[in-house]
Design a protein around this nucleic acid. Structure first.
Length: 310
DNA sequence: TATATTGTTACACC
DNA sequence: TGGTGTAACAATAT
């Protein structure tokens, strides 16, 4: 499940691999997953926004200038000034193969990375968009659930996108410090929602989903059930103190492959090995031995240690 | 076959 | 009315 560290992992790898490559052709197998213009792609009833021919013609022939990130959105900048926004949602994947790798593994099934890699068939059942480059390299976009999207916008449209405008600060920015965080808390500290849901709210601070919010709250010693309005200043300080370290650890481990997340070479991220609570329901707490519990908050499963988190 | 899954948004409510 | 909280939605594996 791609959250900030997983998206950052993909973005760093793609930027390195795709920069200055030129798109020779594009294949779209799932028209509903692509769009042109600043439209709400998730509204699948608006069939007319899925203009596949336009999408393909606008991209073909372009050089990729850079691949960056805002929150969990991946941002491709093309030489014709257009911007492609990609959201991986739950199960989106980018897998890249250069010509050398293709020639080496002539099989239809490719074990892309010998270390901790799932067997990947390319293109597979869930490959929805394929980018072919002029040098023979290929980029596959896979998505088991088809919740993700690829959206092409102009720079002007990009600057006006409402989903980006409502994003809170990037937690790993140097400017995101304790004072900035506590000032943000002033705006929301009377809310009746749970701290868990608050941390996952991208209009507060971006990038933290179910995995990292659980891990941060565990280390901060704050129960996910707690109402935002009940938190003391020290609780907020504790939470802040763990946001950057845990997200950074996730990036160092190349993400957490609890769901279907893979890196751009098809291999798994290693962050799952360092989880203290997420996916640990029924196991002993690594700190105190108490059995990790789980509860539903806002329809989402939250895992926590009843002893370490108050 | 019912259920679980998540980021985002539409909508109901006070 | 505007801010807040909740439910619905996308599609698939199990």
């Amino acid at each position: 499940m791609p959250e900030l560290p997983e998206v950052e992992t993909v973005v760093r790898e793609l930027n390195k691999k795709l920069k200055n490559r030129i798109i020779k052709s594009v294949v779209v197998n799932a028209p509903k997953m692509v769009a042109v213009g600043p439209v709400t792609v998730s509204n699948r009833r608006e069939e007319k926004v899925h203009d596949v021919k336009k999408f393909i013609s606008l991209i073909t022939g372009n050089k990729i200038l850079s691949v960056t990130r805002r929150s969990k959105l991946i941002i491709f900048e093309f030489s014709n000034q257009l911007i492609m926004l990609v959201h991986l949602k739950m199960t989106g994947q980018f897998i890249f193969e250069d010509l050398k790798l293709k020639q080496k593994t002539n099989s239809h099934y490719r074990l892309l990375n010998k270390l901790s890699a799932p067997l990947v068939k390319l293109p597979g059942k869930h490959t929805h968009v394929i980018f072919h480059f002029t040098d023979g390299a290929t980029l596959y976009f896979n998505d088991i659930r088809k919740f993700g999207y690829l959206k092409l916008v102009t720079r002007k449209e990009f600057n006006e996108l409402k989903e980006i405008k409502q994003y809170g600060p990037e937690p790993l920015d140097k400017s995101f410090n304790l004072d900035v965080f506590l000032a943000l808390v002033e705006n929301i500290n009377k809310r009746k929602t749970s701290i868990k849901q608050m941390i996952m709210d991208n209009s507060f601070v971006v990038g933290m989903g179910n995995i990292y919010s659980d891990e941060i709250l565990f280390q901060a010693g704050v129960s996910p059930i707690r109402k935002v309005s009940s938190l003391k200043k020290q609780d907020w300080k504790n939470i802040f103190n763990w946001i950057k370290p845990i997200l950074q650890k996730g990036i160092e481990a190349k993400g957490s492959s609890v769901g279907d997340f893979v890196r751009t070479d098809g291999s798994w991220g290693q962050m799952g090995k360092f989880h203290f609570v997420y996916g640990c329901k029924g196991k002993e707490c690594k700190k105190c031995g108490t059995i990790i519990k789980s509860i539903k908050l806002g329809g989402r499963t939250s895992c926590f240690c009843p002893s370490c988190q108050k």
